[in-house]
Computed example of a mutant assay.
Amino acid sequence: MADVTHTPRVFSGIKPSGGLTLGNYLGAIKKFVQTQDSEMETIYCVVDLHAVTVWQDPADLTHATREVAAGYLASGLDPAKSILFNQSRVSGHAELGWLFNCVARVGWMNRMTQFKEKAGKNAEKQSLGLYAYPSLMAADILLYHATHVPVGEDQKQHVELTRDIASKFNHDFKAEGFFPLPEPVIEGPATRVMNLRDGTKKMSKSGESDMERINMTDDADKIAKKFRKARTDPDALPDNYEGLKDRPEARNLVDIYAALSDTTAEAVITEYAGAGWGQFKPALADLAVDKLAPISEEMARLMADPAEIDRTLAAGADRAREIAEPILSKTFDIMGFVRG
Rank of each mutant, 00 (worst) to 15 (best):
A119F: 05
G207Q: 05
P282H: 11
L161I: 04
F280Q: 00
I269C: 02
L143G: 13
I295Q: 00
D154G: 04
D305V: 15
E297P: 01
L22C: 07
G71Q: 02
I223H: 11
H171F: 13
V193Y: 05
L84V: 11
Q87H: 07
F169A: 07
R228P: 02
A275I: 07
K225A: 13
L287S: 00
S17Y: 01
T21Y: 14
E187M: 15
A104I: 13
E183P: 08
T232N: 03
D255K: 07
E67K: 10
Q157R: 04
R66V: 13
K281L: 12
V90Q: 11
E266D: 10
V254E: 06
I214L: 09
Q36N: 03
H171S: 15
L292H: 03
A64F: 02
N195E: 07
D262N: 15
Q87R: 03
L20I: 06
K118E: 06
L260W: 08
I214Y: 00
K205E: 03
R89I: 00
D37H: 04
H63C: 06
Y257R: 06
R321L: 14
L287E: 00
K202L: 09
F100N: 08
F332K: 15
E124L: 15
D221T: 12
G19S: 15
E39H: 09
L196T: 13
D37C: 03
A283M: 04
L22F: 06
L253G: 08
F178C: 01
L142S: 07
G19E: 14
S209G: 04
K125W: 09
P238Y: 08
N170P: 06
E117K: 11
T35V: 12
H50G: 07
E212R: 01
E325W: 14
P238E: 10
W98H: 09
Q36C: 05
Y257W: 08
S12T: 13
R251F: 12
F11T: 12
F227M: 04
P326T: 03
K225P: 00
D333T: 15
Y257I: 06
I141Q: 04
A123G: 10
V52Q: 06
A300V: 11
Q56R: 11
I14F: 06
E67G: 02
L292V: 05
E176C: 09
Y44A: 01
